[in-house]
């Protein structure tokens, strides 16, 4: 059985290109934040290429077609980039411009969610069940984790950072996925 792509296959080249572009974009954005764009670009491109080789060289745990993996990577990167750009430029804009700027990550996020939806639709029945149960555990876990957070917010009158909520959601989803994969794996 073929478990990885051949070096001359179109998918392999597309994976390398996607990894390269994704790495370069994130590298530049992070480089800007740390004051060294060139270093960020170089490290990002190298890590992106490594990611392209990595996803080409192993059997995917889920049955996503390669083009969907690439689409998820690109749209996810676009989402992160637009969030970063907004965070960096937040102080420079105001009023309607600020609202429009805040809408851009929403559009990128919608594209990302659409890509994830397409990927889940391409799975077989058991893998879809794994994803559904993981999402259910993630949702329930996030709701439970938010209770003490909300109580602390009320008692200290200092709202929690939105990033904490995102981190809790992602962590709970990962816990749910590990749990269900262990159950069916």
């Amino acid at each position: 059985m073929k478990t990885f792509l051949q070096n001359d296959s179109p998918d392999f080249r597309a994976n390398l290109t996607t990894g390269f572009v994704v790495g370069a974009m994130l590298g530049v954005a992070l480089g800007m934040g740390f004051g060294s764009i060139l270093l960020g670009l170089a490290v990002g491109m190298a890590l992106g290429l490594a990611l392209g080789i990595f996803i080409s060289r192993r059997e995917l745990p889920m049955r996503y077609p390669m083009y969907l993996v690439r689409r998820m990577l690109l749209t996810g990167t676009l989402f992160l980039l637009t969030m970063m750009i907004f965070a960096l430029a937040e102080g420079m804009a105001s009023g309607a411009t600020l609202i429009l700027g805040a809408m851009v990550p929403t559009l990128a996020g919608a594209l990302f969610v659409y890509s994830i939806g397409s990927a889940i639709a391409s799975l077989d029945e058991m893998q879809r069940r794994i994803q559904t149960e993981a999402i259910a555990i993630g949702f329930g876990g996030t709701a439970i984790a938010l209770i003490p957070l909300a109580l602390l917010d009320i008692s200290t009158h200092s709202p929690s950072h939105w990033l904490i909520l995102s981190l809790i959601m992602v962590s709970m989803w990962l816990v749910g996925k590990l749990w269900t994969k262990r159950r069916y794996g």
């Binding site: 059997e59 745990p61 889920m62 049955r63 799975l123 077989d124 029945e125 058991m126 893998q127 069916y184 794996g185």
Partner: peptide, 10 residues
């Protein structure tokens, strides 16, 4: 069967 190897294994 047009499913994943993991599904056959499960």
């Amino acid at each position: 069967l047009d499913v994943s190897r993991q599904t056959v294994n499960a």
